[in-house]
């Protein structure tokens, strides 16, 4: 197999890897916000359930969670899981990362002084206005470094999709390495992850700079 053929084959895998990454970010970032609100709910039962959810998401391997999301519906409801593979991967990743993001958001919320809420209230802002206009922008600034960490982890975690026999980049790299008895696919995979994460770090640093105009 020529190097270019190999690159071409792995390139398709990279696209799938990117799809997992982008869709997971797209779903988990807002879902994390919802989970954070449930986690801070004034209803004890809602808080407790959410806490338990987060504990399970953080306390069990993502690989196991992916298997559960994929095979669970079949064993529990006899659902036909043909064609469901990719959806299961996205659900698994999103549900897991949302739990982590929720905790990061929660940490960010705690950094906002009570006075900000009180000032907003006295000035007549409604609850939603206060959150989206006054609180959230400050939370985002506070949590950017932790979010960057989490996103970088996600780039590398996409390789876990191999558990469900999904041909993302790393799965292909392993297949080619085995069939061609070559070390090169692993080098290519390593370079890919490194470059992708370099781009993530660069982008996040750019966004952080955008928030540098105030302390």
């Amino acid at each position: 197999m020529s190097f270019s053929t190999m690159l071409y084959t792995m390139g398709e895998g990279m696209l799938r890897t990117c799809a997992i990454f982008i869709l997971t970010i797209l779903f988990s970032l807002p879902l994390g916000l919802v989970i954070m609100f449930l986690r801070r709910s004034r209803f004890f039962i809602v808080r407790t359930i959410t806490k338990f959810y987060i504990a399970v998401m953080r306390g069990t391997p993502l690989m196991l969670q992916l298997l559960m999301w994929y095979f669970g519906p079949y064993y529990l409801f006899g659902m036909n899981i043909r064609g469901y593979r990719f959806a299961a991967i996205i659900i698994g990743f999103s549900m897991n990362y949302a739990a982590y993001f929720a905790e990061i958001y929660r940490g960010g919320m705690e950094t906002i002084p009570q006075g900000q809420y009180e000032a907003a209230e006295v000035l007549g802002y409604g609850k939603a206005q206060t959150f989206f206009k006054i609180i959230l922008p400050q939370v985002v600034k506070a949590i950017l470094p932790s979010v960057t960490n989490e996103i970088i982890t996600l780039v590398k975690d996409t390789s876990l999709a191999f558990t469900l026999a999904y041909n993302e980049m790393f799965s292909l790299a392993k297949q080619i390495a085995a069939s061609q008895t070559s070390f090169v696919p692993f080098v290519v995979a390593g370079v890919f992850y490194f470059v992708a994460n370099y781009a993530v770090a660069f982008t996040m640093e750019f966004i952080e700079k955008k928030f540098d105009y105030y302390k």
């Binding site: 002084p113 006075g115 000032a119 907003a120 006295v122 007549g124 400050q138 600034k141």
Partner: peptide, 17 residues
């Protein structure tokens, strides 16, 4: 009724952003 009053805080509580 809230429109009738304003409040200035000890810690200012300006919006930093």
């Amino acid at each position: 009724v809230k429109r009738y009053f304003g409040l200035v805080f000890q810690q200012f509580n300006l919006f930093p952003h």
